[in-house]
Amino acid sequence: MDNHLTLNLLIWRQSGPEQPGMMVPYTISGVSPEMSFLEMLDHLNDDLSRRGERPVEFDSDCREGICGTCGLVINGIAHGPKSACTTCELRMRSFKSGDTISVEPFRATGFPIVRDLVVDRGAFDRIIAKGGYVSVNTGAAPDGNAIPVSKFDADRAMDAASCIGCGACVAACPNASASLFVSAKVAQLALLPQGQPERDHRALKMVEQMDREGFGDCSNHGECEAVCPKAISISHIAIMRRDFMRAAVQ
C-alpha cells in the first residue's frame, strides 16, 4: 500500500552488560502508520531473524500503556515525540517516510543495560520496598466513608498514583534523577490518611535508597514531567522535599 513508510533506524546494539555498544543503522520498509512503535520493531526483528541475525531486544508487556514495562528513547526523547504517551502506544503515523529515527535505551547508572534496549529497573523496586506501602491491620475492612478525604487531595493523590514506574523520568532527566518517580509515591501516600503512620519514615528511607542506587540529584529541569506518559507533575517533587525536610528535623 502507498501509505506505508520506509524508515532509517539507528538502534543501540549491545550484546551484554559489560560489552561495548554502538548505534547500528537499519532500513525498514512496509511500515504501516497504524503500527505501534513496538510493532514496527517486531517487524524489524522478523526481518533480522529471517536473515539469521540476532533480533533487537526491548522490553514490553501490556502494550496498552498501563504496565510501564516498555520504554525507549526515540530521537532523544523518552517514549518518543508524543506527550503523555508510552512507547507501546506511540503510532508510526507520528513519523514520515524517509525519516531517520534514533532508538536508544534509558541511560542511567541506576538502570544498567542488560542487552540492546533492555535495562534493569530493579532499583525502582528496591526504592518502593523501603516505604512505598501502607501497613493495614487485618480483620474487617473499615468503613470507607469513615475516613474523609477532600476532593482536592483525592484528585492529587490519584494523579500521583497513576505512575506506572516506567522510568522515563530518569531517562529524560539531564541528571538521571529518579525524583519524579519517588515523589509520586511519597506524595500519593502523604496526601491520604492511610499514608500518615509511616509518612516520615517513608520520605527518609525512600530518598536514602534513591541516592544509594546512583541516581542524580534533581535540578528542576522539569523534563521528566514533559515525557511522563501519565503527565505526573513535578509539584509532587515539592511535596516530597517538604516531607523529607520535615521528617529530617524531627
Binding site: W12, V73, S102, N175, G216, D217, H221
Partner: peptide
C-alpha cells in the same frame, strides 16, 4: 556536588538528546 553527581549518574551520554517541550522547564 549536584553537578558531580549528575556526571556519575549518566556516564554514557545519549547519542541524541532532545527537549520534550510542553511542561519542561529545561
Amino acid at each position: 556536588s549536584v553537578w558531580q553527581k549528575k556526571r556519575l549518574a549518566r556516564p554514557q551520554p545519549y547519542y541524541q538528546a532532545g527537549n520534550a517541550g510542553g511542561a519542561s522547564r529545561k
